[in-house]
Design a binder for these strands. Structure first.
Lengths: 232, 232
DNA sequence: ATATTAAATATTGGATCCAATATCAAGGTT
DNA sequence: AACCTTGATATTGGATCCAATATTTAATAT
């Protein structure tokens, strides 16, 4: 059947309709996933060679990531992966809490049993997951599942954006902190609160959960800073 | 003195260190200011000619604006100024309220008399201002002045970003609605509440103010939609 | 006459090329 | 010996050129 090949090409084309899109998506993943570390210099032609394209799609992609706050341009010097100061990380936790609690309050009344079960499914997978890199991704998927009703809204996108920015730090945190186990209990509680159907109570559980998570991150950052100070 | 020329060059260079930056800033202003209307097609070479540069800086700038959500790329067809649906506008009002109330609560305890006076100064200017286009800009400046302490934080940037997105719609609203006069009274109340130093009360005043503003916008949008429906 | 297909045109996406600038190094001068 | 200046090198910013694709128009067939 000719259609299969055609379909395959179409789908792979639709995935990334243009090189710029492809490069942007890949770089975004690379930065969030930690393949490109904070403050790391980005050499355009090097990346272009790696992707097998010219520097142009790379440049356009980098401009997008700049607007997203993931990279920073130093004119005539190059682009670097944006560095977040500890203060900013904690601030983002705060913003995240604000946005997500609001999102949850809006989502809870519309939550279907189907979505709740899907969220629990993710939690079950999380229980089995040992790879730290994947844990962050699935943690995000769990939380975003609860906001599934809001898909397509600005709020949903904003929450997702905050997640992406925080994720690479959360990931690092998780490698050092044994936070995964503890947070699972809170996740279960969160689902229970959602199922109960009380938006305010659910939001409160979420707030507590995120506060605890932020506290863990703060603790880790303080430790890192003390370490950095000692090295000087 | 050679320094003066040097300084002049430096400053004009620092303003826009690169063509891309210049084009991006100008286009951003153009879209927010309404010079480029919603849904309007953007022709790259046409813009390039207008700026007196090649298409390249334009392309890079457009990519940035795409990431900022101000324009949308249709592959191989071109870029259009992003269109906001009425739902999205109202949603952004909601998000704006959420973020700004939070910001205000954080800012109030740190508010100095100096900042308050500066805010009142802006209000005085607003009283005199009759040009609708400038009114939106100054309205923004008034509100942002109250968050001046937060300058440099993610929250501040986020609030500012929401403002920009909403501004072009607010501007349109103001031309039809006689909202300016009424909102000034609320602005004065807001400053008073801030001076009183009670974060929660100030936030409540702000919430009411923004809710009223959102209501006015909603009303206008409903009218427009009814009109559009009648034309069909 | 209308619909479908094919070709022409216009516009974007991507590659290559050139210019501007920043960094680094070396040499000279104080 | 240290600092400043000048030049060499590498890398980005910008321009031009070519290819890919979408739209539109015209022509042909039903």
């Amino acid at each position: 059947m000719v259609k299969t090949l055609q379909t395959l090409i179409e789908t792979s084309r639709r995935q990334y309709r243009t090189m710029t899109e492809m490069v942007a998506a890949t770089l975004r993943e690379a930065i969030i996933g930690g393949a490109l570390g904070s403050g790391e210099m980005i050499r355009q032609d090097q990346l272009a060679a790696a992707f097998g394209v010219s520097r142009m799609p790379v440049r356009e992609a980098l401009r997008q990531l700049e607007a997203e706050g993931l990279v920073e341009f130093l004119p005539h010097r190059g682009a670097v992966v944006a560095e977040l100061k500890p203060d900013e990380i904690l601030e983002m936790c705060e913003i995240r809490s604000l946005l997500e609690c609001h999102a949850l309050k809006k989502a809870v009344p519309k939550l279907s049993e189907d979505v709740l079960r899907r969220a629990e499914c993710v939690l079950d997978e999380l229980d089995e997951e040992n790879d730290v890199a994947r844990w962050g991704e699935m943690n995000q998927r769990f939380h975003m599942t609860l906001y599934d009703n809001l898909r397509g809204t600005r709020l949903y996108d904003l929450v997702a954006a905050q997640y992406q920015h925080l994720d690479r730090y959360i990931r690092v945190t998780l490698t050092q902190l044994d936070y995964a186990g503890k947070s699972q209990a809170e996740h279960r509680m969160l689902v229970a609160a959602c199922r109960a159907g009380d938006p305010d109570r659910a939001a409160e559980v979420l707030r507590a959960h995120l506060a605890k998570s932020a506290g863990a991150i703060a603790e880790l950052l303080a430790g890192q800073q003390a370490l950095a100070g000692a090295q000087r």
